[in-house]
Amino acid sequence: RALFRYFLTNDVRVFFYHGENDLDYGLVPKLLNAIHVSVFVAIGFFYFISKEIKSKFDYCASALLFGFILLLSSKNIILVVILLSLIHFFYFSKSSHKLRLRNLIVFSLLVLLVFSYSTIKNRLAYEFQAHTKKSLSANVLEGIPKNVHFVSVKEAWQNKTFTPNDYFPGTAFRVYQFRIFTELISEYNVFFTGFGLNASYPKIEEKATQYNLYKGSDVDPGYQNKNFHNQYIQVFAELGVFGFIILIIILLINLKNAFKTKDFVHFAFAILMISLFLTESFLWRQRGVVFFTLFYCLFNSNVSKKIE
């Protein structure tokens, strides 16, 4: 689809991420969501690289799927996929048993961490206060006009008010959402009960009005209708602390069973879900809850049989 659109438009944007709407440029339509597709593709990628005996087709499929993950441009998923690929190579693959590099690698990483601590600390401090359009997580609004003010993480957490000219990069917006979550839980005293399923949206809109965030228009969406973009916060806000605890238990059981079975695809699925929930309300979308429920049940049924 992207190749066909490229020949028509000669615009390389058709190969990356998703467009501002379903008719705009992008590798997948806006409604489909590039981050969600990245997760689906990642599971396929890990299936192929984890096969003990690989054919030429397996290598080609792995390369194609990894390229697709890069083009979808979800920084969070790309980082996790690379990390999991390294874990597979050094701990799960046959070569990991032949190459006795594990202790050397761990030692080297520890040494690098010790020597680079001050550099990492300074970099994080800069990111916290910098006014930059670059972000560690995906942006929530696309097509931002020029001469807007990019809100820093510090401003997102501390500012008493904003202006319609303030634009939130992905990380800053998620910090702002966490901020209003803590305020809403305190103001409405819903720590134990939550607001109810999808009942947090009017409260988020109220906060957007209170802080004077950009509201958009009929054709240009604003910030007031966005969910928390964090599954843990979304569950806590709408189902209360007990719903949050249940979600954590579900994820821990999944991770525990992945270690038990030593099934790398199961392990990759567990880590992907834990990281994805930090930046997306994945289970509050139909494709998300269907995908998670299906694979969770498939991986965690008959765990003892898998071990045998």
Score class of each variant (00 low, 15 high):
L72P: 06
L83T: 07
S96R: 04
L65C: 09
F92A: 06
S55W: 03
L83W: 04
L86I: 15
L70C: 13
F48W: 02
L84Q: 04
H88K: 03
S93V: 14
F92P: 01
I82C: 07
I77G: 00
S73L: 02
H97C: 02
L86D: 05
K56C: 08
K56L: 13
I87L: 07
F57H: 12
V81C: 00
L65V: 06
I53T: 14
F57A: 14
D58Q: 12
K51Y: 01
S93W: 07
K56M: 09
S50K: 07
F48L: 01
A61W: 08
S93G: 11
L83K: 03
F68T: 07
L84G: 00
S55T: 15
I87R: 02
K94G: 13
L64Y: 15
N76P: 04
L84M: 07
V80A: 11
C60A: 13
L83M: 12
E52H: 09
E52I: 14
I78P: 01
L65D: 09
V80P: 08
K56Y: 08
H88F: 05
L65W: 04
G67S: 15
V81T: 03
K51V: 05
K75S: 10
S96D: 11
S74C: 12
F89G: 05
L64Q: 10
H88R: 04
Y59M: 11
A61K: 07
F92N: 05
F57R: 13
L70E: 06
I77C: 03
I78H: 00
K54W: 11
N76S: 15
A61Q: 08
